[in-house]
Design a protein around this nucleic acid. Structure first.
Lengths: 339, 339
DNA sequence: CTGAAAGCGCTAACAT
DNA sequence: ATGTTAGCGCTTTCAG
């Protein structure tokens, strides 16, 4: 534990303004039962002394809060950065402060992050990450309204906003429509995701329905050697297309194919998911789906604030539509066998 | 203000474990003066009741804190996301919780963000954004140890960690070395950045030294119409190379050139800065400089924690080296005139 | 319209 | 080794 500088307190401001602490509190809380003269005096005193409100004391005394928390696992991922950015904007509009905490890829770190948020008395928590354990989200939901944003989690106790699974099926259909008969799908394995990631599952389901042979590329990390090996194996197994569960993974795959001198999409097709920022650039030309982040964020903030305002509201689920981004990395199948 | 659910308090845990609140506090603070039997009893009770520590009350009572704050302006920017991610990892290693708040591009929002962090009793603040006003950073420094990370700000009261300006000069030299005699440099204008962004200034200085004619591309936003217009004008003015102050801007420029059917680098060269994630991809091939984010983050966290631990330490500055990334967007000059 | 006093959850002497 | 007490900065009845 470390000291932090003793700061100006409400009592100091009260003293300087020649009023009682209670009055200062009233002024700061915009109470209408204060004369405008004292209001001005207090505000001036606060300003002159450089007063900063102790939010911990405020929520301690009032059992109230104007802040919500955002838990993200990976800010080093453009998609979640964009999510955080949008969630902040929406929170601000709704009059809430947003506290963002990020965590590592293990339960302990995630639980710690949730407790940190709860410890700061957030009124609600938005969790955004496919790789946050369900138990962590459910734990959060025991204390405050919790919403899973773009997470693939489907829990009764928790609100969720995510992209319509049809968007994922449609992408799979499109791939199948290009004549691919053996398609590999990436599956990020994490100590936390016991079940298959929802997106991967949706891809697979549709591919199977479309009569396509599927191959699961199990990835321990999103980049590097393991990915290379998985790509090699998928191709050996006859896959003519790879459906990556994110643009970041798709890009890594494309880079590897480029290194190998394998032509995409003529020898093998690759699709991504997210369609954000640089990944959606026409210069990269990734065939992908653009997630409507702003819409997702707005829905998430609306949900938490509604449930904070009215405790009787039950958690609900919501789906938004993604937009197909054509790109140049998806092409007809069988070319590899023709050459 | 909104209610938040009444939670289990230390008194409840104490009661359940049949001890006094003080003992619970001792257990939670890992005091060695507690018998292992009671320790276990308390821990079990806390667990059974779902106890979550009220961090506000803790810092209120102890005037101590184990959390530091990170202020970023734009999480919707891969570079700052990466920074946030690294800062979190380093903080965790140092035993600090990290509270991240992001803000909008105006002083009010930034001041609010700093106050939010201070209000939650952070022991120190790391500010990461070129576009955060100096006054905001100095305000923060009045209360807690503050470090500017990769910001271009150079203030006495504040620590700073940034990339060595030589890295920027060297990039400019390299551009000049390719024979460019009229080079445009992007300058993001913001209500907050009164002076020129440090990076832009460093580019310009070196270009002038190298005897190159310079042209300043004033950008109101990093993308869209204004950018297009600025590119048009720079080219009309005879620029054969554009030095963008970030990869994101460079990419937007490259996309526009592509739209126009202008060949890069044969007709005009473009360089970026940051070299992170997708922007550093060989598939994009941007000639840029890679910022050592992990190193920057580590230095920043080291600085705050050192100053939190020892108040007498004076704020210092630190420079780290960036790494040149060749790419394919920088080529010899004059081609446009030859054709 | 304003002040006095109690108490939020916790820690830190001081007792024992 | 553990309990008692005061008080951190604030809000909130309750008086006036």
């Amino acid at each position: 534990m470390q000291q932090y500088k003793h700061r100006v307190s409400m009592a100091d401001v009260a003293h300087a303004a020649g009023v009682s602490p209670a009055t200062v509190s009233r002024v700061l809380n915009d109470s209408d039962t204060v004369s405008s003269k004292t209001k001005v005096a207090v505000l001036n005193a606060a300003d002159a002394l450089g007063y900063v409100r102790n939010l911990g004391a405020v929520s301690l005394a009032s059992s109230q809060t104007m802040t919500i928390g955002l838990l993200v696992r990976d800010l080093d991922n453009y998609f979640y950065g964009a999510v955080a950015s949008c969630v902040r904007n929406e929170s601000a509009k709704a009059g809430f402060d947003l506290l963002i905490v990020s965590c590592a890829d293990n339960i302990d770190s995630q639980m710690h992050a949730v407790r940190c948020l709860l410890g700061h008395n957030v009124g609600g928590i938005i969790v955004s990450s496919g790789r946050v354990a369900a138990s962590v989200v459910e734990y959060s939901a025991k204390f405050v309204p919790t919403v899973a944003l773009a997470s693939g989690l489907d829990l009764q106790t928790v609100n969720s906003v995510r992209i319509d699974p049809k968007t994922e099926s449609n992408l799979a259909k499109t791939v199948a429509g290009y004549g691919h008969r053996c398609v590999a799908v990436t599956a990020s394995s994490s100590p936390l995701t016991s079940s298959l990631h929802a997106r991967t599952a949706n891809f697979l389901t549709q591919l199977v329905i479309s009569g396509v042979r599927t191959y699961i590329m199990s990835l321990k990390s999103d980049t590097g050697e393991p990915l290379h090996k998985a790509v090699d194996e998928a191709m050996e197994d006859g896959a003519t297309a790879i459906m990556a569960s994110s643009d970041a993974i798709a890009l890594s795959i494309l880079e590897y194919l480029d290194e190998l001198g394998i032509d995409c999409p003529n020898e093998i097709s690759v699709t991504g998911f997210d369609g954000m920022g640089p990944y959606g650039s026409p210069l990269l030309g990734i065939t992908t789906v653009k997630q409507p982040v702003a819409e997702l964020a707005k829905a998430a903030v609306d949900m938490v604030s509604a449930r904070i305002a009215d405790e009787t509201i039950q958690p609900g689920q919501m789906l938004v539509k993604g937009e197909f981004v054509p790109g140049r990395t998806l092409g007809p199948a069988n070319n590899s066998k023709n050459k």
